[in-house]
Amino acid sequence: MDMTTPLVEMRDISIAFGGIKAVDGASVDLHAGEVVGLLGHNGAGKSTLIKILSGAYKADAGEIRVSGEPVAISSPRDAKKHGIETIYQTLALADNVDAAANIFLGRELLTPWLTLDDATMESETRKVMGRLNPHFRRFKEPVKALSGGQRQSVAIARAIYFNARVLIMDEPTAALGPAETKQVAELILELKKQGIGIFLISHDLHDVFDLADRVSVMKNGRVVGTARVADVTQDEVLGMIISGKCPAGATPGPGALRG
């Protein structure tokens, strides 16, 4: 196991909505240049856990450390300050404005007169979208007019444009075609090479095994276990997701089936 200080550590995180414990004492960590797959059935609490890291929710209990230092993340702005960028499962795009406006939302480029520098933003958008989706042409249209995959590309572009240290990808390829999915896979490997840590949430075990170094499996808001992909088989991970049974190659978490 990697013994250096993790880039991000989430320790004993809990949050409840009404009576439902969406996340219950979950701990995950992520090192620089590492891809950690977050797996689990629908409603397991994956999105909720990473939304706590991205500042969308505030945890009821638990601690977040960035590079070993405890940090308080109480808004998306705080997370971004620590270099944590997120591609949300719902994409979180403003439908009525164009790709450039979405990519730079909250971090607009300004001219010396403090007006919006739309021309530079559009030109930067063309560059970053060129990496993700070279066929993309509809720069002037509100993102409402885009296809699901194109919208997803815009959301990815927004996350990678600002030199993230930590990238959270919540089902980033759910709406993408095979070519674009492959492009995102290549992008993930490239970003990893640059030393960026990536949380990857996906239901595609095959993809996760291809891209991730480790996987953490959640069930009913709790972590079943964490394992290096080299130490477990896909069937064993499937068992963790479905029945919560922690195999020998994995480090069991509080959610592991006892006995």
Binding site: T90, A92, P142
Partner: peptide, 20 residues
Amino acid sequence: RFGRYVFAIGGNPEAAQLSG
């Protein structure tokens, strides 16, 4: 910027908030 935020909030308040 202010105007951009006004429109973004109208398009998707949650997205605007998540964008900071």
